[in-house]
Design a protein around this nucleic acid. Structure first.
Length: 198
DNA sequence: CTCGGGATGCGT
DNA sequence: CGCATCCCGAGG
């Protein structure tokens, strides 16, 4: 695998990389979504460490947000979304692909941020520009549902602040959701080549 | 229990 | 645009 520009930059900053604290996630979901851009998703399995830089996300705003799974209420499936912030919500969609979310805000708020795309930094194979592709490349599946992101094997970290512009727009694949479909709850790094649908 | 549909991705 | 492929949640 090539020593990519992103990996080179990451190695330079490696000593300063810090795991995001619980308080990061325990804030307004749209704010968390925007601030997740540029952060590093890190997953260690065995002796392999996979790293991707988050470049595209979507915010899902709790029980009243029609496309949010928590809009169905508290069920076995959505229980994680109603739980404390800083945990993962991973589910299988269309029987094929996995999607990864980060639970936000206080317990009971039932909000989350969907990770839609990452830029490969380390040990990622295949495409990463979509929620299902991202999970495949990062080795993420339902076994990681409910995982605490303050753990040492699966977490999100920040490095030195990187300058970029953020683009916002309607979420993908929720056209059925009336006025909720029109809200600009999707955010991505402007000009980044790994965004799913620029 | 059955059944309809989905925060996707890929091929036609 | 069709379809893979399975889980979920609603309804009987």
């Amino acid at each position: 695998m090539n020593y990519s520009t992103a990996e080179f930059l990451f190695s330079l900053l490696n000593q300063r990389v810090q795991k995001l604290p619980r308080e990061f996630y325990d804030r307004d979901t749209q704010l968390v979504a925007r601030e997740l851009l540029g952060k590093f998703l890190i997953h260690k399995t065995g002796d392999i460490e996979r790293i991707g830089k988050i470049v595209e996300v979507e915010a899902y705003l709790g029980e009243h947000d029609l496309p949010a799974h928590s809009a169905k209420g508290r069920t076995a499936r959505t229980e994680i979304m109603f739980g404390p912030p800083g945990h993962t919500y991973v589910y299988l969609i269309y029987g094929i692909h996995h999607c990864m979310n980060v639970v936000t805000e206080r317990e009971g708020h039932a909000s989350a941020v969907l990770l839609r795309a990452v830029e490969p930094v380390k040990n990622l194979e295949g495409r990463t520009n979509g929620p299902g592709l991202l999970c495949r490349a990062m080795g993420i599946d339902k076994r990681l549902n409910g995982h605490d992101l303050l753990s040492d094997d699966f977490y999100i970290a920040e490095s030195e602040a990187e300058k970029f512009s953020t683009v916002k727009g309607p979420r993908i694949g929720v056209d059925y959701a009336k006025h909720w479909a029109k809200r600009h709850l999707r955010f991505y790094i402007k000009g980044n080549a790994f965004v799913s649908k620029p």
